[in-house]
Amino acid sequence: MTTPTPPTPTPAQHSAGPRPRLLLVAHGTRSSAGRRELSRLLLETRKRFAGADGGARPATTPVECRMAWVDVQTPGPDKVLADGVPTVVIPAFLARGYHVTEDVAGACRDAPGPVALTPHLGAEPEIVRALVQRLAESGGTGAFGADAVVLGAAGSRDEASQAETRELAATMSEILGVPVTGAFASTAAPTATDAVAALRADGHRRIAMLTHLLAPGFFADRLANAGADLATPPLGAHPEIIDLLVRRYREYENEVGVDPAGQ
């Protein structure tokens, strides 16, 4: 089993002045466990920037890190961006869909200050490595690991979003060396339950649910109860996810103009 090698990053050229704010925009959840995990995501990102930013910047050049939500929780991204502070916005979504293309993009488009909107998290090498590690930690790899895997996502009516999940499932199948089916907790087909049942009908004896979600909550519970023999926890504040957030920020930081006099 091999994991993809990440591209060699090209360090951004920074000025010595203030840096743009980082705004993570997530879906929002009523789950207390989910809220704690997303709070950890923000905390670990703040800690990374309070250090040496992966060796690229000294700790004396801080980055303000905040979080906003498109549903259930507040504030929304429009409320945060209303102050006009130069901001790099990262949609903390694993696949595109209405919330990314409309809610987050719309808030950035209407913001009074300079904003750089990065792509959503997608199927970047950090995501793939985090998924492989979650599966290994849950006993889904190796001689006694799973002989088939369901890559369980939240689901979306957006066909491009569904296609992302299926393409990632194909990538995971190549890496893991077992069949991997993309499936969904809601909205899209196949459902996670149907995907597990289909693999059972094909003769697979040990099926893993590879949870392609950031945080615990309603969708994660659905995936965990879809009938697989084991289910991985959501990706949450996995170090690879923090690496990706830092990389996204660094790639887009210079696209935001910052007033050297202090915003």
Rank of each mutant, 00 (worst) to 15 (best):
G17W: 07
S186N: 11
L23Q: 03
Q73S: 14
H27P: 03
L245T: 04
P75C: 10
R205T: 10
T5A: 14
L213T: 15
G84N: 11
P234S: 09
R250K: 09
L210R: 15
G152H: 12
H238V: 05
L213F: 07
D110T: 15
H204P: 00
Q13F: 15
D229F: 02
A105Y: 03
T2N: 12
S186G: 04
P86Y: 15
V85I: 13
K47T: 08
H99L: 07
V104E: 02
E102R: 09
A123T: 04
T87V: 03
I175H: 10
W69G: 12
R19C: 13
Q133F: 12
S156Y: 06
A12I: 07
L41R: 00
T5N: 12
A111Y: 03
A56S: 11
A92H: 15
A59D: 04
L223I: 09
E44A: 08
R46Y: 00
D83V: 10
G182D: 03
R250C: 12
R109L: 10
P179F: 01
A169Y: 06
A192S: 10
T5K: 14
Q162M: 14
T10F: 03
M172T: 13
A123W: 12
R36W: 11
Y98A: 07
G257H: 09
A111N: 06
E255Y: 14
V85C: 10
M1A: 13
V85N: 15
G145P: 05
A188R: 07
A169C: 02
R30M: 04
G142E: 14
Q13T: 04
R109F: 04
H27L: 07
A105G: 02
L81F: 00
G236L: 12
D110S: 12
T211E: 14
L24G: 02
L223N: 13
V258Q: 05
G54D: 09
T87S: 01
A116L: 05
A82G: 00
D202I: 05
F93A: 11
P86I: 13
L135A: 00
P4N: 08
P4W: 11
G217C: 07
V256T: 11
A208C: 03
P112N: 04
E126C: 10
R134D: 06
R46Q: 08
S156W: 14
D221G: 14
G236W: 05
V88I: 01
P119S: 09
V132E: 02
P112V: 06
L135C: 02
P20A: 06
P86K: 11
A195M: 00
L22S: 03
A33T: 15
G177Q: 00
D147M: 03
E64R: 07
A188N: 10
A170L: 04
T87L: 02
S32F: 08
V70T: 13
P11S: 01
I207H: 00
P20K: 01
T8L: 13
G106P: 01
Q133T: 12
E159Y: 15
M1W: 05
A56W: 07
Q13K: 13
R222V: 15
L22D: 01
P75E: 04
